[in-house]
Design a protein around this nucleic acid. Sequence first.
DNA 1: CATAAGCGGAATATCGGGTTCCGCTTTCAC
DNA 2: GTGAAAGCGGAACCCGATATTCCGCTTATG
Lengths: 243, 243
Amino acid sequence: MAPRTAPGPRPDTPPATRTGPSTLAEPTLAEPSSRPLRRDAELNLERILAAAQDVFAESGFDASMEQIANRAGVGVGTLYRRFPNKESLVLAIMEMANRHSEALVHDVLAHAAPAEGIFEFMRRCVGLAPSLRALVSRSPQLAETHRTMVDKLSPSINRLLANAKAAGSIRSDVTFSDIAVTLMSVRLVEDRCGEHGASDKLGRRQQGERHLQLLVDGLRAKDSTLPHRPLTRAQLDDLLVRE
Amino acid sequence: MAPRTAPGPRPDTPPATRTGPSTLAEPTLAEPSSRPLRRDAELNLERILAAAQDVFAESGFDASMEQIANRAGVGVGTLYRRFPNKESLVLAIMEMANRHSEALVHDVLAHAAPAEGIFEFMRRCVGLAPSLRALVSRSPQLAETHRTMVDKLSPSINRLLANAKAAGSIRSDVTFSDIAVTLMSVRLVEDRCGEHGASDKLGRRQQGERHLQLLVDGLRAKDSTLPHRPLTRAQLDDLLVRE
DNA sequence: CATAAGCGGAATATCGGGTTCCGCTTTCAC
DNA sequence: GTGAAAGCGGAACCCGATATTCCGCTTATG
């Protein structure tokens, strides 16, 4: 639906100010030497980032700049003052999320029991930040960045997985991709539960956790209790038809 | 993204020819008394229905009429000859799917072992037809129809669930909504695996089954084997970035 | 208090896609 | 065989949805 290329009059402006010769372009953020932002601008930037994270998580890349601006309580113009275009804003959000994930794996790797690390990771990963969902798929630039992020993360996750297998706490035919799909699935469920505007705040995270628990325990296991209550009839309708 | 109401010049044509006073409107299909279609037209109608089912399943409601026409090997005009608008086509597809699901529950209810019925239902339900995904959410008409369909189905599913609980083959804190979410989650995974145009045909259904097995067995169980092989690295990338 | 940085949000330029239209083709009844 | 009705394809049309720009007004800051 969203135009593959920017429709508005943007003759040829390169998406971001590429400085380094190789690797990745840096988004508009990190302007190393320019003078610091005015205090109010700084605040707005934070608001924008937070709003963008929320809105993108809820609606994917299709979320409009206006939506984000509204959520942040600023005008669109302000968004464009900080980020030359939508893509660079997305990039900034992705990098934020990446930083968080990385911190998480390392923390779990360092502090959790080997047998439980992978499970703890999954739980906290889901609770960490809303999914980036379909954010990535639109531009080669974003896809490339995302791939790189996954590459940096996967060794650590594989270590968690290996630890769990060595401890016999996880079935041995599970692979990295199963973990990824599982995480994705939980997030998809969360997304679905969190979309539209209604009974969100309650169901979303909780349904995600419930689903994850199901995935971990399995429908057939009976020695643990599913967390949270199931969807109410109204919530279910809501989920199923997402008006 | 898609306009909430039809944008083109469609003055006021009611979406479908309502005949009955209550219940549901019937879509454009079932024209009771008009003379039968020409042989070629009949064939095209079948093609259209099949194409629409596939395309909607892959891309949701956002799939364009042109996409569907192309897949069916006909022109857009032909679509509009049978269905006055997009909504009525969607309706037709939904009703098709519903008929299938109903047949399935009843068959399972009649023939499967009580302890296994719910699991067999889930497996076959997923294998039955591609998910209707986000099809439903756009118009009140569609939402209403969908709700009605769910209502008709849920008693039977609840019976399956009750049977399984009585037989002790399923944990007792599972509810109807958990089954629904589980099914949805598997379909979402399938959708994700089947989107874009590349490594589809193989991965899609298989990944769905693998995920379902995981949900049924649970990550911690070890006395069963996950079906199919895990995603290859390429497929995983593909899934994660969906270019 | 001057001034540059920031701000809001209406206006602009496109674009995608549902729906319509119409001249050409195919089927069917006689 | 033949003419009319039914069907067909797909270009054209129209509209809503944004990304992005522009510019006059505000507000920190020195």
